[in-house]
Computed example of a mutant assay.
Amino acid sequence: MNELRLLPWSTPDGKPCFLSTDENGGPLSRLADRAEAAQLDAGADLLEHATEVLTDDQTEPDDLRLLAADLTDTLRHVLRVAMSRGHRLPTPDPSVPREDEGPHLPAAAFG
Rank of each mutant, 00 (worst) to 15 (best):
T21Q: 00
A44S: 13
L7V: 03
S20M: 13
T55K: 11
D41R: 11
L66H: 13
A42K: 05
L105E: 13
L4A: 14
A69C: 02
T51G: 13
D13F: 04
R80G: 12
P92A: 09
L79F: 06
A109R: 12
G25D: 00
A109Y: 15
E3S: 10
T11R: 10
P97E: 09
D73G: 09
S20T: 05
A109T: 13
T21H: 02
A69T: 13
L75G: 08
L105H: 15
T72V: 00
E23S: 03
L4H: 08
L28Q: 12
A35M: 09
D33N: 12
L54C: 14
P27N: 04
T51D: 11
L66V: 12
E48A: 14
P90G: 07
D57G: 09
T59W: 12
T72S: 13
E101K: 12
H49F: 08
G14C: 02
E3G: 03
T59A: 15
N2A: 09
D41T: 07
C17F: 05
P8S: 07
E23P: 01
P16W: 05
A42Q: 04
P16G: 07
Q58M: 09
S10T: 15
S95Y: 04
D22K: 12
M83A: 14
G25S: 01
L31A: 14
A38Y: 01
H77L: 08
R98G: 15
H87Y: 04
R88S: 15
